Amino acid sequence: MSISTAGVVARPETATTSRTPVRQQPRKQRRLPDLARWLSPVGLILLWQAASSTGVLPPDKLASPLTVFESGYHLVLDGSLVDAFLVSLSRVAVGFVLGALVGGVLGLASGLSRWGERLVDPPVQMLRTLPHLGLIPLFILWFGIGEEPKLALVAAGVAFPLYLNLHAGIRQTDPALLEAARVLGFTRFERVAHVVLPSAVPQTLVGLRIALGTAWLSLIVGEQINADAGIGFLINNAREFLRTDVVVVGLVVYALLGLTTDALVRGLERRVLRWRAR
């Protein structure tokens, strides 16, 4: 009896030819949308410069982009902008750590325990409805006019969004996954460590992005409280002398810091949540 080799050889060929090649988007086409995102910001800056050059926008109302760039360059050279940047960055870092600790602990206590939710969630929900920037007079009475009210303001801006998203992420864990882990004999600690907390990571990272944005917003207001250093102090001094160029430089630095921290969190999100893409 003879065995036909043609049929044997044909099977892998059929398997390979049945695969549909994945078309990748050309690199030029991928770059076009990225470049298009810069059209409107560049257009606004050009329009701003044109309005300043023609006198439509007087310099005492708003300095031109070229003047702002020149002022920022001189502030970097004399070191005043770098010193202010380091002071503001340290305030945000300390306030963020304090707020993240408070929000994380309260979120875990409320999300992992029914009794914790009954005891912790109601007062947190009541406090989060208060505009935390309106707590400045109370913080001044409690902590004085030094660094403490600024740090407390940043911490309050961080704690609430992080708490809400961590709590929601824990509560939205798939019950089927928990049941499967229970059937497999996982202890409560193992279910929390291997099922609940990994499921809460995406929502928690969203809360982290919101918290960082709120931290910089809180710092802008906090540095208006009798500050003797920092970007807010630089802006206040410029306001007294009607230096709109320096005011804009400070605001641009705030915006760049916010965008940078948000980009760092988005990079962390892509790295941590690679399994979602797969």
Rank of each mutant, 00 (worst) to 15 (best):
Ala84Phe: 07
Ile136Asn: 02
Gly144Tyr: 09
Gly107Phe: 01
Leu130Met: 14
Phe143Asn: 05
Val87Met: 09
Gly111Ala: 05
Phe139Met: 08
Arg128Trp: 04
His74Thr: 15
Leu133Glu: 02
Gly95Trp: 00
Val124Phe: 10
Ala84Met: 08
Gly146Val: 11
Val82Lys: 10
Gly111Ile: 01
Val120Met: 03
Leu108Ala: 05
Leu135Ile: 10
Phe139Gly: 00
Leu119Ile: 14
Ala109Cys: 11
Leu86Lys: 11
Val94Cys: 06
Ser88Asn: 11
Leu141Thr: 14
Pro137Gln: 10
Leu135Asp: 05
Leu98Phe: 08
Phe143Gly: 04
Glu117Asn: 13
Val124Pro: 03
Leu127Cys: 13
Gly95Phe: 00
Gly116Ala: 04
Pro123Thr: 06
Phe96Met: 09
Leu75Pro: 01
Leu135Cys: 09
Pro123Arg: 08
Leu138Ile: 14
Trp115Glu: 12
Leu106Gly: 01
Gly99Arg: 00
Phe143Gln: 07
Leu127Tyr: 12
Leu89Lys: 02
Val82Gly: 09
Arg128Gly: 03
Arg118Cys: 09
Leu77Asn: 15
Ser80Trp: 09
Val94Pro: 01
Phe85Gly: 08
Met126Ile: 12
Leu98Gln: 09
Val82Tyr: 11
Val87Asn: 10
Ser88Thr: 11
Asp121Arg: 13
Leu112Val: 07
Gly134Arg: 10
Val82His: 09
His74Lys: 14
Phe143Pro: 07
Arg91Ala: 03
Gly134Asn: 07
Ala84Val: 07
Ala100Asn: 02
